[in-house]
Structures are given as C-alpha cells and as structure tokens.
Design a binder for these strands. Structure first.
Length: 536
DNA sequence: TGCGATTGTCATCTT
DNA sequence: AAAAGATGACAATCG
C-alpha cells in the first residue's frame, strides 16, 4: 500500500490540466483510496501482463508498436521497486488503447519465438479459480466492458486482491518452473535423440563421407544399437564357426573368370561356362534337385590337398561354406516385411536383429533353416560361390576367404598353390562376401534411420500440438487481461470529476503520464489538445 | 501372373 | 596404391 500512496501522489498534485477553467482539470482528491487500490491492482495485472509479454513478445508488439520505454523515459527510475512496478503498471494502463489493438503475432513468428523464449501462460481459469471472494459485492462498478464471471470480484476487495494476485504470481512462477521443466522434458527427447539421429543420418547422406559412416558405426557399436553390428560380430563369430556363413545367390557377372565345372573338377575354364550358366547356376530347381547329390559328392569325393577337412569338417552339419541357406533369408525376408507392414520399421528391425542373432548362433541353429520339404535334415543349398569354390577345389572355407584380415588372407593364399583362376575366384568371393555384409549393414542403417525419423516426426507433431494449445491459452489469457484492464480503466474514469463535478468521458479523454510522474487527463479532441499545449 | 519385399551383386566413390 | 567400407542401382528370388 505504500507503493500505492507513492503512486497516487503525483496524480494528486498534477491537477491542472487544460487551458480553460472548464478543461483545466484537476484530478479530484476524490480519486480516493478506491482508485489507489484500483491502480495497485492494475499494477499487479500489468506487471503480470508485462512479465509475460516481455518474454513472449517484443515491446513493439506489446504496445501496438509504441514502446513504453520510449514514451516514458526514465520514469521514476529512482524509486523503489514497487514504484517501478507502479510505473510499469501505469504505462500499461496508458497503453490500454494500444492493447485493444494488440494482435497476437502470426503463427509462424509466434511459433518461432515461442519455441525459443516462450514462457507458459496463466491458464484461462486462473483468475476465476484463485479469486474466491466471500465478501459481499461492493457498490456496482461502472458497466463492465466485458462480462467476466470474475469481473467484479475484485471491486472493493482490493486488499484481498493483492494476495490473490500474489497467488497468481506464485502460481505463475510455479507454472513457469513446472512448464519449464515440462518444456525441457519435451525438448529433451529431441535434443537427446538428436545425436543418435544425426549419427544415423550421416550414413544416409548420399554425399556423406565414409567417416560419417564410421562415426555412426562407432556410435552404434558403443551402445545405441549395439547389435547394429550384428553382422560384423556374426561374421566374426563365423570366423570361428565354419558352418555359420550365408550365401545363397550370386551370379558373378563378368568379374569372375571362367571356372571349372563341379562335374568336371579337373577341368578348367572350358567346362565352367556350360555348367555355371547352363546347369548349375541358372536353374534353381535343378540346383535344389541336385543339391543332395552334389553335397554327397562334396562330402565323399572331393579331396582338397591337405585342407579338405576345413570345409568338410562337419558331417553332422553339412555346410560346406554357407551356414545360412536361402530359406533363412526367405524367412527373415518375409518376417521383416510382415513386421514392417504390421508393426512398423522398428519391429522389422527388431526382427532383423533377432534373425541376425539366430543366424549367427552357429551350426546348432542351422537345421532350422533347411528346407522342410524333401528328405529329413536336408542340407542347405550351396551358394554359387560355394559351388564355384568346390568346382575349382578352393582349399579353404569361404568364411576364411571373407573374414580373414588381408594379411592373414594373403598368408593363407601363400600356403597354397593356386591357379590364376582359383585366385581370381577367391578374391571375387572375398569381395562379394564383404560387400554382402556391407549391404546388410547399409540397409539396417537405413531402416534405423527411418525409425528415428519417424520418432522425431511424432515428437515434433506432439510439440506442435502442445504449442498450439499453449497459444490458445495465451490468447485467452490475453483477452481476459485486456478486458480486466479496460474495466479498471473505466472505473478510474468513473471517479474523476471536473470542477463542475461532471464525469469525464472515457471516449473523450485519456490518462497520460509525463516523465516527471505527473498524470494528465488528455482530451482526444485535437483542437483541445492544441489549446492545452498552448496553455502549457 | 503381377507385385512388392528382400537379398546378393556390381560399380563407384570415399577413407 | 591397395584394401575396405558405403551406397545406389539392378537383378534374382520368394511369398
């Protein structure tokens, strides 16, 4: 209340306004404590309004393009904090005309600014909820500019409005804190997901560098998607498990030199083409039909120098090179597709991981992937590279060809005397095997990227909806405050009388405050304004 | 039989 | 310069 008195003082001593005695007005001393209280309450509301708008909007927007600081420079800057608040309140009151024209910023700018600096607004029902007034209503105030359910609750109960407004303030602060935490919570997932997302995005960048891929791989291998490297790990595992490799297709186009026919092991290039294209490699049915016979041929007739056991090591697991027959791919393929269609890419990726884990478990799982039709424990069909390797009597398993480090691989090659054809095939097998793994990784990264983008999209949509809701609440709060200020402004006018005791019309006059703290009743009429200026 | 999904492979580029 | 990885494009395969 002290601040109220300080605030009203200049109002009392700035009585003389206007050139004529009629217009030379004095704000009557009947601008009573009621008015003082009105101003005090106005200050609370205005401060609340300003505290929000100064964050959410620019001063220009707030005052309809009129800067309050510009209009009233240095207004009682020496005063107590309450004084400053009063000044701000008064300035806000003075700007009420502009407030009426206040337009909420456009959506784009609003969203942008809101996203950056927005503080949550007071809920619409804040006033009504926080202003219970058991006291009987005071004498009827001037006609309200807006019919709020709580519009007259404060009238005559200003002493209680203070705590009410304090409650409002505290509520607001609580809301700020809460909402800030909520906002941060809302933001966290995005910012949290960003690195991983970016790490996943980088491989998606067509023009991206392999460094990006490596970074993504590093990130993934460190925890985000540890099993993203399942293939690599699986391959590593396969390096120790000769019966755990997969390859079910692969017609070498051009890069592979002519190979010997499986049916003609001793043959070289001449026998390759007819067998490779005509019989062994172009007719899948034929392949499957002759698979057992060929495997039997492999198991019982092939003699690969001194390393035959390396690919014939497992009679119980009749896998020469490939541990993962095509049926495994078929199952995985259909499973992934089904998951994508029914549960989305995440489930598909999960299925991929599961299947990958299964595929890398070793030979114990191997029989699960053999074709159910046909004889019991039907061995898996050989891949074409496997068949070629058999045809050329490559003396070491494909898993070694593919997974050994280059030095070990070269050392392995030096241990055997291989023809040029064999060497070329081995290198082709190695290249294709590595590329197959790379393609699998690449596709998994793509799928993961899609999943993350989907999540990000959902989060952004949720944020957009939330911001729209906050904007709506903001607009409602703003309309409510404007209404309240208009009412209070009108009430202030209702207590002002000229020397004849006639009330001033709010349509003809407005209140203005000078830098020195004086408050004037200023006529809207330009002529009277000029007279007033001359009189001054 | 046509279609979509999956997978392997090739070519090419980057690291 | 070679090796390896990444990826777009294409074809084979499958349901």
């Amino acid at each position: 209340m002290c601040s109220t008195a300080n605030y009203v003082l200049p109002l009392r001593r700035t009585c003389e306004v206007g050139p004529s005695t009629k217009r030379k007005t004095s704000v009557q001393s009947q601008a009573s404590n009621r008015i003082m209280n009105v101003f005090f309450f106005l200050s609370i509301i205005s401060n609340h309004l300003l505290s929000q708008y100064k964050v959410a909007a620019t001063p220009g927007r707030l005052c309809g393009g009129v800067s309050m600081q510009t209009n009233f420079p240095g207004v009682r800057s020496h005063g107590a904090p309450q004084d400053t608040e009063m000044d701000v309140a008064w300035q806000e009151l003075m700007a009420i005309t502009e407030l009426q024209e206040f337009e909420v910023p456009s959506e784009s700018s609003y969203e942008t600014s809101q996203y950056q600096t927005m503080e949550p607004m007071v809920p619409v029902g804040e006033y009504g909820i926080s202003q219970p007034h058991p006291e009987p209503p005071p004498p009827p105030p001037p006609p309200s500019a807006c019919e709020m359910s709580t519009a007259d609750n404060y009238d005559g109960c200003y002493s209680e409005e203070v705590p009410t407004c304090h409650r409002l303030g505290s509520n607001t602060e609580a809301m700020y804190g809460n909402s800030e935490s909520q906002l941060s919570q809302r933001m966290l997932p995005i910012s949290h997901a960003q690195p991983s997302l970016m790490a996943l995005r980088e491989p998606m960048n067509i023009s991206g560098t392999s460094q990006g891929h490596r970074r993504a791989n590093a990130c993934l291998s460190q925890g985000l998607s540890r099993h993203m490297l399942w293939t690599t790990h699986g391959q590593s595992a396969r390096a120790r498990s000769a019966d755990d490799m997969e390859s079910d297709s692969g017609l070498s186009l051009g890069s592979s030199p002519p190979l010997a026919s499986p049916d003609n092991p001793a043959g070289g290039a001449p026998g390759y083409q007819s067998i490779d294209i005509g019989m062994a490699y172009s007719d899948g049915e034929h392949d499957s039909m002759n698979e057992h016979a060929r495997r039997a041929h492999i198991h019982y007739s092939m003699d690969y120098q001194n390393q035959a056991h390396s690919y014939l090591h497992s009679g119980a697991h009749p896998s020469y090179f490939s541990p993962q027959p095509s049926l495994c791919h078929a199952q995985q393929s259909s499973l992934t597709l089904r998951s994508v269609k029914q549960q989305g890419p995440a489930a598909a990726l999960s299925d991929l991981y599961n299947d990958s884990a299964m595929s890398s478990r070793g030979s114990s799982q191997h029989n699960m992937y053999t074709k159910p039709q046909g004889s019991i424990s039907t061995p898996a069909p050989l891949s074409r590279d496997e068949r070629r390797a058999m045809a050329l009597k490559i003396p070491f398993p494909m898993e070694k060809i593919i997974n050994l480090p280059v030095d070990d691989f070269n050392e392995l090659l030096t241990q055997y005397t291989l023809t040029d054809t064999q060497l070329a095939l081995v290198r082709d097998i190695r290249r294709r095997g590595k590329n197959k793994v790379a393609a699998q990784n690449c596709r998994k990264r793509k799928l993961e990227s899609i999943i993350h983008l989907e999540r990000e999209l959902n989060q952004l949509q949720a944020q957009r909806e939330h911001l729209a809701q906050e904007r709506l609440e903001f607009q409602r709060s703003l309309a409510f405050i404007k209404c309240r200020l208009t009412d209070l402004y009108a009430e202030v006018f209702s207590h002002l009388r000229d020397e004849d005791g006639q009330p001033y019309s709010i349509d003809e006059y407005s209140l203005q405050q000078t830098p020195d703290g004086k408050i004037y009743l200023v006529p809207h009429n330009a002529k009277e304004r000029a007279m007033l200026k001359n009189w001054e």
